[in-house]
Computed example of a mutant assay.
Amino acid sequence: MEHRIIAIGRQFGSGGHEIAFRLSEELGVPMYDRDLVEMAAEKLGLSEITIEAVDESVFNTFLSSYRYNGLAPRRIPLNDSTFETQSKIIESLADKGPCIFVGRCADYVLRENPLCLNIFLYAAFKDRTERIMKRYNISKKEAEASIKKMDHRRKQYYETYTDRRWGHIESHQILFNISQLGITRTIDTIKHLYADPISVPSTDI
């Protein structure tokens, strides 16, 4: 039976997690965000803290941790191993039924799936700063620094493991400006597209 998948890319502070969570509740389908970190940690036999340190980030090869297989294995940088493991988990979950993925290059991993709705969420820097200040109870300066750091990490990670540009119109089926649309209207629009697959054809990039 065919089922729909939603893959959400997002700028830090754009409201991606909240939107995914509300979509999950309103559509009645599971959402996977940090859950993928927990699953990857279990598969790799490592702690969640270790996996989270490289999740959606790319480190210099010489500074990366390594995983060993067998007596004389090939050495795989931990960030590469994490990406490979999370990708297999994403593919497995997508095969089982409808679901929502947040980040982790899920749109690229599922690029051959014609029923994967691939979207990217962004917002004005000012709005993102205010959201992060409120969410983490930090100063404006700290929030701005966090946004720049996280956006850089996500962009570098995405463009390292895919042949696409992070947040670019050519990489995603639809881009949503949360500052202009608001969270509720964005959710309503995504729900409409989810219910009508013909509205958004598969992107062949």
Rank of each mutant, 00 (worst) to 15 (best):
A7H: 00
I8N: 01
I8L: 05
F12R: 01
G15K: 00
I19C: 08
R22S: 06
E26I: 05
E26H: 09
L27Y: 02
G28N: 06
V29F: 04
Y32W: 05
D33Q: 03
R34A: 10
R34H: 12
L36I: 06
L36P: 00
V37D: 00
V37W: 00
M39F: 09
L46E: 09
T50G: 07
E52K: 14
D55N: 06
S57N: 13
V58I: 13
F62Y: 14
L63E: 13
Y68M: 13
Y68C: 12
A72Y: 14
P73E: 08
R74Q: 15
I76S: 10
I76L: 10
Q86V: 12
Q86P: 05
K88N: 14
E91F: 09
A94T: 01
K96V: 08
G97V: 07
V102N: 04
E112M: 10
C116W: 04
L121A: 01
Y122C: 02
A124W: 00
D127C: 02
M133S: 06
K134M: 06
K134V: 03
K134A: 08
R135G: 02
Y136V: 03
Y136D: 13
K141P: 05
E142M: 11
A145M: 12
I147F: 05
D151L: 00
D151V: 00
R153L: 13
R153G: 06
K155H: 03
Q156R: 12
H168I: 03
I169H: 11
I174A: 11
I178M: 02
I178Y: 02
Q180H: 15
L181V: 03
L181A: 07
G182C: 02
I183C: 10
I183Q: 08
R185W: 05
I190Y: 03
D196H: 15
P201N: 09
S202Y: 11
D204I: 13
